[in-house]
Design a protein around this nucleic acid. Structure first.
Length: 250
DNA sequence: TGCAGTGTTGCTTC
DNA sequence: CGAAGCAACACTGC
C-alpha cells in the first residue's frame, strides 16, 4: 500500500493498524484468522486448479515451522525489511478493511463495542452499570462484544469457573456479591491469559508460545482441578463447559 | 465413513 | 428496542 505503519492498537478483538496519511487498517481474525510476520513464496503451479489456500507456501516465521498455522494466506503485505505481514485464515471468516481513520472508527462494529475489561477506567461501578435493565444468561452476555469487549468462549468459561457462577444464571439473579466475584475474575483471568500469551488450539504446535492451555480450568477439560466431571451444554449455539459442583446456578 | 464440533459476529426474524 | 437462531467456511476427530 506504500504507507508507513505508525501505530498498532487493539479494540476488543479488532486489530487496528494506523497508517501514514490518517488511514487505518482494521483486521478481525474471527475464528481461524492469524495475522503473522514471516515469508511466503508463490506457487504458480497451483494457480490453475488449486484452492486459493495453496497459492502461498510458508518459508519461515518467528515460531519456527509455520505449519499448520500459516498455510492459508488470503492477504499479504510486503514490509520494508523484506519480511511480510500475512493474514492466514482456514475458515475464511476473517475481515480486513482499510479506510480513513475516522470512517473506520465510526463503523458500528467499533463504535458499538462495550468497554475494555482491562482498562483501569473500567471499575466495579461501571461493570455493575452494564447490567442495568439487561436480561439474558451471564455466559452469553460475557461473550457479547457490545456488552463487554474481547471475551470469547474460552475465557468466559474460565471466568465463570473462577467466579463460581453457573453459565446459565440469568443476569437479573446476580447480586452484588456475585458481580464483585465476576468482576475480579474477569480481570484476573484476562491478565493471566495475556501474560501467558493466550490459548493455542492446535495441540502440540503451540509449544511455549501460548501457555494458557496448561492452566485452563474447564475449557475443553474432562475434570476441573478438584476432580469433578466437567459438564458441557449448548448456550446460544456455543458450547459452554462448567463444573456443576463448584458453579452455582443463581 | 459421516457427522458433530471448532476460536466470532452479524443478519434475519420475531 | 432485545433476544434467539443461524449462516458464513473448511477441517479434525470420534
Amino acid at each position: 500500500m506504500g504507507k508507513a505503519i505508525t501505530a498498532v492498537d487493539r479494540r476488543g478483538k479488532n486489530i487496528l493498524i494506523s497508517l501514514m496519511g490518517d488511514y487505518l487498517l482494521l483486521i478481525h481474525q474471527k475464528i481461524s484468522g492469524r495475522l503473522m510476520v514471516g515469508n511466503w513464496e508463490r506457487r504458480p503451479e497451483n494457480e490453475a486448479g488449486g484452492t486459493p489456500h495453496s497459492l502461498w507456501q510458508p518459508i519461515s516465521c518467528p515460531q519456527g515451522p509455520l505449519a499448520p498455522r500459516g498455510r492459508f494466506i488470503h492477504l499479504l503485505f510486503d514490509l520494508d525489511d523484506g519480511r511480510q505481514l500475512g493474514l492466514s485464515d482456514l475458515r475464511k471468516f476473517a475481515k480486513a478493511l482499510c479506510g480513513k481513520r475516522e470512517v473506520i472508527l465510526n463503523r458500528p462494529e467499533i463504535r458499538q463495542l462495550g468497554p475494555e475489561p482491562l482498562d483501569p477506567q473500567f471499575t466495579l461501578a461501571k461493570f455493575k452499570q452494564l447490567f442495568a435493565g439487561r436480561k439474558g444468561r451471564i455466559k452469553q452476555m460475557l461473550m457479547n462484544p457490545n456488552f463487554i469487549a474481547g471475551i470469547g468462549n474460552i475465557y468466559s468459561d474460565e471466568i465463570l469457573y473462577a467466579a463460581g457462577i453457573h453459565p446459565l444464571s440469568p443476569l437479573a439473579n446476580l447480586q452484588d456479591r456475585q458481580l464483585k466475584a465476576l468482576y475480579g475474575s474477569i480481570k484476573k483471568v484476562l491478565k493471566k491469559a495475556v501474560r501467558m500469551r493466550g490459548t493455542g488450539m492446535e495441540g502440540g504446535t503451540a509449544g511455549a508460545e501460548q501457555g494458557y492451555d496448561k492452566i485452563r480450568m474447564v475449557y475443553q477439560r474432562k475434570e476441573c482441578p478438584r476432580g469433578h466431571q466437567i459438564q458441557r451444554i449448548r448456550i446460544g449455539g456455543r458450547s459452554a463447559r462448567f463444573c456443576p459442583v463448584e458453579q452455582t446456578l443463581f
